[in-house]
Measured scan of single mutants.
Amino acid sequence: MASQGTKRSYEQMETDGERQNATEIRASVGKMIDGIGRFYIQMCTELKLSDYEGRLIQNSLTIERMVLSAFDERRNKYLEEHPSAGKDPKKTGGPIYKRVDRKWMRELVLYDKEEIRRIWRQANNGDDATAGLTHMMIWHSNLNDTTYQRTRALVRTGMDPRMCSLMQGSTLPRRSGAAGAAVKGVGTMVMELIRMIKRGINDRNFWRGENGRKTRSAYERMCNILKGKFQTAAQRAMMDQVRESRNPGNAEIEDLIFLARSALILRGSVAHKSCLPACVYGPAVASGYDFEKEGYSLVGIDPFKLLQNSQVYSLIRPNENPAHKSQLVWMACNSAAFEDLRVLSFIRGTKVSPRGKLSTRGVQIASNENMDAMESSTLELRSRYWAIRTRSGGNTNQQRASAGQISVQPAFSVQRNLPFDKPTIMAAFTGNTEGRTSDMRAEIIRMMEGAKPEEMSFQGRGVFELSDERAANPIVPSFDMSNEGSYFFGDNAEEYDN
């Protein structure tokens, strides 16, 4: 993207840094990872977990959730003011799984939030270390993106479920800051804005008074975040219109849905970061690795190297396929839920299948599930090659597409044709070009129609051997075009429920 120079890199967003050079960025990201790792080690000690239990991804998720809940100030305040039966607002906890007599047992633990905050700050040299908290939120978000298709949420806001490739980060909490905003897809931002506008339509006082002023500035800020994701002048001009509207209503909703559809071809720039579970960072720190000293990046080879040398386990339900569970977590670790499966298959070195073909449910185990038949197995999170994460949407291309997802959002900077089903997408653009945004709409449609099938995206960008740390010898991959490109292809993934 041309304006790259004016933006802070995501590592800076990730670490609240002012302008830093590459070495400083690597050190501050490393410091953040160190903090998460030290916190995780301490929690495993508190909970008396064995090494194996500490490497269980379900335990990692519970521990991450506990610290996120302990620092969720708004919710904590709300819980104190609106006490609900049987919930102690000062405590947080969740299921911890232990191996007892050759069987997995679930144990519900409860801790004072104050105590968890103390352990977290102690692991982070006394700081609140917001960057580390956001990092864990993005890992949870990436896992949700890989596990669930947001059909219901899309339909509720009037969008087409086939636009799911635009929904990265749709389950990120509001408090995820600049680093969170960077990884949100165009569809996620559109959905947040539509929800806001709908509230304004239904509630006369939404934009009024002292609160209304705050609401208005939040609305304009979200519009600017979305505008910054678009790469064409016409899309940005249309966002200006939406932002400046005196009284946002149905016309703005129409414009936003139009823009979301246009992003299936004229893709937005959305950041991709490899955020790993805390149970990967903990053992690495415990083994003596100093992330701050060595430096770390979320968008280069580092996460690949770390996963190459990590042992992570997962509980497996009786009829689940461990290899499929591994694929789910591998995609989440690489922030690749909406990437082209052919690119992923090449990088991973084994075939990556669409969601609907995987015999696996989510990673988390519900409290009512029976533990008797639970097994555990090693997650295979290694890769054959590594590639640089991208934040450009890439230019655009036609490809055989599917009944489910009709476009992709690249996660890796790797040369390819970008699949999208042009006739299906263009069919949504018939007729409606009147109104105050008509010239911009016409211009956007013209650009979409001009998108050429034979153009290559990320020209000359390749993948790298894991021994090639400096990215000196790019390998331009070859793809098996007979395979499906979309992950949520004609899909039956479970729906995400809060």
Rank of each mutant, 00 (worst) to 15 (best):
M1I: 05
A2T: 00
A2F: 00
S3L: 15
K7E: 11
K7Y: 02
S9D: 00
S9F: 13
S9M: 14
E11R: 05
E11I: 10
Q12A: 12
T15D: 00
T15A: 03
G17N: 14
G17A: 12
E18C: 07
E18A: 13
R19F: 12
R19L: 03
Q20A: 00
Q20G: 00
N21A: 03
A22K: 15
T23L: 13
I25Q: 15
I25T: 03
A27G: 05
A27I: 06
A27R: 15
K31N: 11
M32K: 08
I33Q: 00
D34I: 14
I36F: 14
R38K: 10
R38D: 07
F39R: 04
F39A: 15
Y40C: 05
M43Q: 03
M43G: 06
E46I: 13
K48M: 11
K48E: 02
S50Q: 14
D51W: 01
D51G: 14
Y52M: 13
E53M: 07
L56M: 14
L56F: 04
I57Y: 03
Q58V: 07
N59D: 13
L61P: 02
T62C: 11
M66I: 10
V67L: 07
V67Y: 09
L68Q: 10
L68P: 09
A70D: 12
D72N: 07
D72T: 08
D72P: 04
R74G: 04
R74W: 07
N76L: 12
L79P: 04
E80V: 13
E80H: 11
E81N: 12
H82W: 13
S84H: 11
A85T: 14
K87C: 10
D88R: 00
D88S: 13
K90Q: 15
K90H: 14
K90N: 14
K90M: 13
K90V: 09
K91A: 01
T92C: 09
G94M: 11
G94Q: 09
G94Y: 05
P95W: 10
P95R: 08
I96T: 11
Y97P: 03
R99L: 08
V100Y: 14
V100P: 13
D101G: 09
D101F: 00
D101T: 14
D101A: 13
R102T: 05
R102K: 14
W104D: 05
M105Y: 09
L108Y: 06
L108S: 11
L110N: 03
Y111N: 07
Y111F: 15
K113E: 09
E115C: 03
E115D: 13
I116L: 11
I116A: 08
R117H: 10
R117M: 14
I119L: 10
W120M: 10
R121W: 13
Q122T: 13
A123K: 02
A123T: 10
N125W: 05
A129S: 14
A129Y: 01
G132D: 09
H135M: 13
M136A: 09
H140F: 08
S141Q: 01
S141M: 07
N142W: 09
L143Q: 02
T146C: 09
Y148W: 04
Q149V: 09
T151V: 06
R152W: 07
V155Y: 04
R156C: 06
T157Q: 09
T157E: 00
R162D: 03
C164F: 01
S165I: 02
L166T: 08
Q168V: 04
G169F: 05
G169I: 10
P173H: 10
R175V: 05
G177C: 06
G177Q: 07
G180K: 10
G180W: 06
A182D: 01
K184F: 04
V186S: 02
T188W: 02
V190G: 15
L193M: 15
L193E: 07
I197G: 09
R199C: 09
R199K: 12
R199P: 05
G200N: 05
I201A: 13
D203E: 11
R204L: 06
R208T: 02
E210P: 01
E210H: 02
N211L: 15
G212C: 08
G212D: 08
R216P: 03
A218M: 03
Y219L: 14
Y219S: 09
R221H: 04
K227M: 10
G228Y: 03
K229F: 10
Q231I: 10
T232N: 11
A233V: 07
A234D: 15
Q235S: 03
A237K: 05
A237F: 01
E244T: 05
S245A: 15
S245W: 00
N247E: 02
G249P: 07
N250D: 10
A251W: 06
E252L: 03
E254W: 09
L256V: 13
I257V: 06
I257L: 15
A260Q: 03
S262H: 04
S262R: 04
I265S: 06
R267F: 02
G268I: 09
G268C: 12
G268S: 15
V270P: 00
V270N: 13
A271N: 08
H272T: 02
L276P: 12
P277Y: 08
V280T: 12
P283D: 04
A284N: 07
V285A: 08
G288W: 08
D290Q: 09
F291W: 11
F291A: 11
F291M: 09
G295I: 10
Y296T: 11
P303V: 11
L306S: 09
Q308A: 12
N309M: 12
L315I: 15
L315N: 05
L315S: 04
I316S: 05
I316D: 05
P318H: 15
E320G: 10
N321F: 05
A323L: 14
H324L: 05
H324M: 09
H324N: 11
S326F: 10
L328D: 03
L328W: 03
N334T: 09
N334K: 02
N334Y: 12
S335I: 06
S335A: 15
A336N: 11
A336I: 01
A336V: 00
A337R: 11
A337L: 05
A337H: 05
F338P: 06
E339T: 01
E339C: 03
L341A: 05
V343F: 01
V343K: 07
F346I: 10
R348M: 06
R348F: 02
K351V: 10
V352F: 05
V352E: 08
S353V: 11
P354R: 15
K357Q: 10
R361W: 01
R361G: 08
G362F: 04
S367W: 10
E369Q: 07
N370S: 10
N370C: 10
M371I: 15
M371Q: 05
D372R: 02
D372V: 11
S376Y: 10
S377F: 15
Y385V: 10
W386Q: 10
A387F: 07
S392F: 04
G393V: 09
G393C: 08
N395K: 11
N395C: 11
T396H: 14
T396M: 03
N397K: 15
Q398R: 15
Q399A: 10
Q399D: 01
R400P: 09
A401F: 00
A403R: 13
I406F: 03
I406P: 02
S407G: 11
A411L: 04
V414W: 00
N417C: 03
F420G: 00
P423G: 15
M426A: 11
A427Q: 09
A427N: 13
A428Y: 09
F429Q: 00
N432Y: 13
S438N: 15
M440F: 13
R441K: 09
R441H: 15
E443I: 03
E443L: 01
E449C: 09
K452T: 12
P453N: 13
E454W: 04
E454N: 00
E455G: 14
E455K: 08
S457V: 08
Q459M: 07
L466G: 01
S467I: 12
S467N: 09
S467L: 13
D468K: 08
A471H: 01
N473P: 01
V476L: 13
V476K: 00
S478D: 00
F479C: 15
F479Y: 14
M481T: 10
N483I: 14
E484T: 15
E484M: 07
E484H: 02
G485L: 02
S486T: 14
S486Y: 12
Y487M: 05
Y487W: 03
F489V: 00
F489Y: 15
G490R: 11
D491M: 14
D491A: 07
N492K: 12
A493G: 10
E494P: 11
E494M: 14
E494V: 08
